[in-house]
Amino acid sequence: MRNRKTKLWIYLFLLPAIIIFLVFFLVPIITIFITSFTKWDGFNSPIFVGFKNFINLFGKAEFLISLKNLLYWSLIAAFLHVGYGAIVAFILYRKPFGWRFTRSVFMIPNVIAVAAWAMIYRFFFNNDFGFLNNLIRIFNPEFNIPWFYNSPYAFWAVTLTWLFYSVFVTLVILTDLMAIPDEIHEAARIDGASALRITFKIDLPMIKNAIGTGIILSITSRIAMFEAIALTTRGGPGDDTMNIPLILVSSITDMKYGVANAASVIMIILGILTLIIVELIFKMRKVEKF
């Protein structure tokens, strides 16, 4: 009797979360996958069209440029963005003067709205009142470049809005670094290993998982990058800074729901591919967390 009552309570406690899961995750995801194979405007019933939406996407310049941008952005994210985050983590790990302050401040760009950060950069790089161009004009009064509106600068201006802000990578790596037992370092030092050697031979292999996690997180953030583009370049000039979420939104606005969901499916597949590839490269599964 008591047991049956408890069971009832358990499922009652789970019910609201299950409803949210169904309404906002399961049903939308199933809808995306099914309707990506249909022509659908939201009013009339979807018509099955096979892979046509995908073929159309791959025939569009804006989509191909998005893929190219995503490839560049992913490489920049994996090497420079994560690399910078890792360097900061290794520095903070040695606890130099001001390390706590640096860690705290580094987080700030990530706690304010992405949209606001994009706006800050747009102002900072503004040709008339932006700080950057005014600084350059001290040395070269003739200087005039609207960074977000000219090719090829726009791509790099958008890249700069996130390039150095890898505090998540830093925090994840720092946690793993701090978990390395001191004895291992001491033993290595007694054996005469240099600080650099300890970093490369002991620390780096031990934080492999953290670096892998950092790369996955930063690449999937690039796949979903919307605000930093929508509030600065809107994908322009031309399609220079196009990304898949912008195509997704414009397809919804044009009531091409099938195309929109094909774009979503591609985003999900790219995310899963990233996960698999990075886990394979880093052999993340095989390393036990200590």
Binding site: F25, I32, A224, P245, L248, S264, M267
Partner: peptide
């Protein structure tokens, strides 16, 4: 199963569900 399903939601980029949520 519930725990895995709830955690998997983390892996789905929020933007991808735009159309179903918009229509809903």
């Amino acid at each position: 199963l519930f725990f895995i399903l709830f955690t998997l939601t983390l892996l789905v980029p929020g933007h991808t569900k735009a159309q179903p949520i918009f229509s809903l």
